[in-house]
Design a protein around this nucleic acid. Structure first.
Lengths: 232, 232
DNA sequence: CGAAACTTTGATCTCTGTCAAGATTAGTGG
DNA sequence: CCACTAATCTTGACAGAGATCAAAGTTTCG
């Protein structure tokens, strides 16, 4: 997907062209190799990032080494809240990635200067919170199979934003990442995938799945988009 | 705790006295009986509320009836984001409650009129998001005993804000609520309480616990306040 | 005082985690 | 392009934490 225009999600359709142009000028493009850390929890947030190409996992580490993945970012998503002094989560790349890097201070000034944009940021934050709450409900009260099914359905729907919805849905992250996102082990993820394949709900491909009919069965949250990507 | 001044948390110490006074004038006091619903998920958010006295649980229902509690609000907390058209969660009272009721529109106008206040709201939202993320890490990757211990420590620390820290820590919500908050069953909560009591980490009283030394042992998230109250 | 709500405890079951091999896939250098 | 190594994924056997089902105890409150 070359040419993905990153602030799509953050600035939405709002903000007038002038503001947008100026916004763009604040960014510097950076490429980061696969498996690198973009920033770590607790670090000073000098920069925040727009994700132009590739995928990123956001996570926290517990003292004993367990890892909780809070979300996967995809092109168009924003990494880092301009108002936070420090990054509350860690982020690293899944595969190679292209970022638009912003000085947080400059961006914060820009945002605070425009009530318009501030309002957008506010709405962005509210959306993030809602997604986090979706994830809490997903992790807290669901069986492994429900978790995986819901994850897949959501992932496809998020991806639809940027890919012409082809047959196979790419799954760039390893099983372990999905496990740490859903609060399961990688073995359970693998077994559940296999079970779903046997049931002809999906077809497993290398780094992708094909989703057949009968996957939406698991009871989703009422009417929600159910899109737990947390990008703070 | 009579006379708790509710916007403490939301408006913080900032906002000049004039603004605060005007803010106060927007509110109407309401009393709500125990076990009543204040608002429900998906409902139009005509009003938002400050909690003056009592406790409230925020939750979502899954279609099959399972319930995920997202947080407990206590005096000083705010219920409802002024920018949301609809309530993303349900809220009901635990015991009798006193609320400051605001027209959402009036409040939104007030907020948008003052960049000062808007910024505060922004920070409030960011804090909420961080708390939600804490809760995700808590629910996703912890044993029952860790969950309960961490819950108790956090609850006490939140309560310390409003009570002179006496021996017994009040626990106004029933076991089922704690269970639905932590993603466990009420039986497991009860058994874990008993285990902690046998280990002399706590003493169980009716609607309260005394927390003895040796409770903070469970590895907390590094340096976090670990205060998962979500109030959206 | 008595009924309703909440809590504790017990017995049993099952889902998921853990430990351990293999099988596949991806990556690297010749 | 192939061979070899490392990483990732699948599968199995087993154990255990927590769920479920059921029945007593407590506390609360009218």
């Amino acid at each position: 997907m070359p040419g993905v225009f990153f602030p799509a999600r953050f600035c939405g359709e709002a903000a007038d062209p002038n503001e947008l142009r100026e916004f763009q000028k604040l960014a510097v493009q950076v490429r980061v190799a696969a498996g690198k850390t973009i920033f770590s929890e607790g670090e000073l947030a000098d920069s925040v990032f727009g994700l132009s190409r590739g995928f990123v996992r956001l996570y926290r580490l517990l003292p004993d080494g367990r890892r909780q993945i809070l979300g996967f970012a995809l092109p168009g998503d924003f990494l880092g809240m301009p108002i936070n002094d420090r990054h509350p989560v860690s982020a690293d790349t899944i595969g190679e990635v292209t970022l638009s890097r912003f000085s947080r201070l400059k961006l914060a000034n820009f945002i605070l200067s425009s009530p318009n944009v501030l309002r957008l940021l506010m709405e962005f934050a509210a959306r993030q919170l809602e997604m986090a709450q979706d994830q809490i409900a997903l992790i807290g009260r669901r069986s492994a199979e429900e978790k995986v099914s819901i994850f897949l359905v959501n992932w496809r729907s998020r991806l639809a934003r940027i890919t012409g919805s082809s047959e196979a849905v790419p799954l760039p992250m390893p099983r372990k990442d999905i496990a740490d996102f859903l609060g399961l082990t990688l073995e359970t993820i693998s077994r559940t995938f296999t079970k779903l394949e046997q049931r002809k709900a999906i077809r497993i491909l290398p780094k992708a799945v094909v989703m057949l009919t009968g996957l939406e069965q698991p009871p989703l949250l009422k009417g929600g988009t159910y899109d737990p990507h947390i990008l703070l």
